[in-house]
């Protein structure tokens, strides 16, 4: 499968590494070259400097052939805009946007966009750790 990841932060770089390790074709795009320091020297995917909101940059990153597009920059609105461009303009089959603001995530989920709202997700996990008496220990992810 061909993946295009926008945003080389902790999540983006982690996702990119694990997917390449599994043998997938991964391209990661970020506006700042500095962000790519999170990728190891062994990273076998493509890292491209460019703005994911710029269609030309997305094309350079091979969005037309991507099977999956994931936007995980720090900006909710950037993630949502890029994901919609990937879905509606470039017709990428599977598109996921990470969004910090729960209520904003809901609006776009209702519009048919797959969103992952991280505070809600973390809150859920936190509650599980608090109330679940199984052997989850602090520090587990």
């Amino acid at each position: 499968m061909r993946f295009l990841i926008m945003g080389c932060g902790r999540v983006g770089s982690g996702l990119a590494r694990s997917l390449t390790d599994e043998g997938h074709d991964v391209t990661i795009i970020d506006v700042r070259q500095d962000a790519f320091r999170r990728l190891t020297a062994q990273f076998r995917g493509n890292a491209i400097i460019g703005d994911g909101l710029d269609s030309a940059a997305l094309q350079r990153a091979g969005i037309e052939n991507a099977d999956v597009f994931v936007s995980v920059t720090q900006g909710d609105n950037r993630n949502l805009m890029a994901a919609q461009v990937a879905k509606h303009i470039f017709k990428v089959p599977r598109v996921i946007a990470r969004v910090y603001d729960d209520s904003r995530a809901d609006v776009f989920r209702e519009l048919g966009l797959q969103t992952l709202s991280s505070p809600r997700f973390v809150t859920g996990l936190m509650r599980e750790m608090i109330f679940d008496e199984s052997d989850i220990t602090p520090g587990d992810e």
Binding site: L53, G75, D76, N77, R78, L80, M81, R104, V107, F108, E110, L111
Partner: peptide, 16 residues
């Protein structure tokens, strides 16, 4: 001054 902000604000205003 931010296109993404303008887009998302309009979409939320319209959809919600």
């Amino acid at each position: 001054g931010d296109d993404a902000d303008n887009l998302i604000a309009c979409q939320v205003a319209k959809a919600r």
